[in-house]
Design a protein around this nucleic acid. Sequence first.
DNA 1: TCCCGGCGTTTAGAATATTCAACAAATTTA
DNA 2: TAAATTTGTTGAATATTCTAAACGCCGGGA
Lengths: 188, 188
Amino acid sequence: MSTTTPSDDIGTRLRLVRQIYGLTQRELARRAGVTNGAISLIEQNRVSPSISSLKKILDGIPLSLADFFTHNFSASDQVFFAAADLAEIAYGESISMRLVGGNLKKRALQMLQETYQPGADTGEEMLRHQGEECGIVVAGSLTVTVGAQEKTLHPGDAYYFRSDIPHRFRNPGPLPCHLISANSPPSF
Amino acid sequence: MSTTTPSDDIGTRLRLVRQIYGLTQRELARRAGVTNGAISLIEQNRVSPSISSLKKILDGIPLSLADFFTHNFSASDQVFFAAADLAEIAYGESISMRLVGGNLKKRALQMLQETYQPGADTGEEMLRHQGEECGIVVAGSLTVTVGAQEKTLHPGDAYYFRSDIPHRFRNPGPLPCHLISANSPPSF
DNA sequence: TCCCGGCGTTTAGAATATTCAACAAATTTA
DNA sequence: TAAATTTGTTGAATATTCTAAACGCCGGGA
């Protein structure tokens, strides 16, 4: 499924790593103290580098041998996500959530762009789950209840709480409310 | 603390791994399809092996490159433990437990040599904990209660159950009962 | 005791990796 | 557009690793 490289295809793996780090063969060669030609040959799998060479090269990134062989580098470790590409997550009629990087696996963090229509409400049966979450209101206003506390937030206002504390979100205003939130660990 | 090898001391690391696996240079060379001389040179750090050579060698063990660089091989991964060296764990007056490999870290399994004096009993408030456990009676007899089931085991008899099921051990006989048991994950 | 077999090590030569310098293609700058 | 820069690739020379065959050492069995 993922764009992982077989562990003996050192060349492809090195090229992928180098590109992920945004380095050219020459720049990496300079940092590593080897020649660009050597890196080129390795990346084409035309030679099998010595440990010492590979170590020098990885030091220039920098990346340990263990990490190099352990990690499943993926070209789809996407960094930028167009607004249109944010995965829509249904959450009732009047609440829309758009997930940043929905295709990423194993992430430690989740970010959502949420829209609460006027009157939208996550309900009286407060939400509770593992982890922590925070958010910032971008537009409109949002009434947030966390345990015994309640506050109506306006653009620029933010919240942060442990998610196991019962919480609730409502839009009391006449305008849609836009919110950027983050959870850890991810719940979707 | 541990006898770990720096990640660039490939030679020492390879020698350690090879010895842990009980292989001679010649035997490993034969399995790997390289010469014993090559392994000798690598282990002395007189050459820095190519990835292809190192991979061939590790395939002969077998061990992946990732594992080779990731694991902290330790000569003190002790295998044999003299009876006198089993750590004594107090568990009441009439029950003695002796732990195999108490000095090992991060083990996935725990083995105990237990002795129940006549009349010994873990008590009516049944034991419950995570994991699974099993054991074999070596001498004497032992009455084991697991959930609704109860049986008196004699030498050679054994048990295996999920530890979250309430359980209890008693020695109903006139002789000490010796038992070998194992838990996973470890509870001591 | 001597001999045998297995052990790790060593050496010379074959095989492979790396450097150095030049090349063509793509991109940037003027 | 043309010149200049930067990119990855390549060939010849050099440096390193790997093989094959020997060596010395040690322990076990006649």
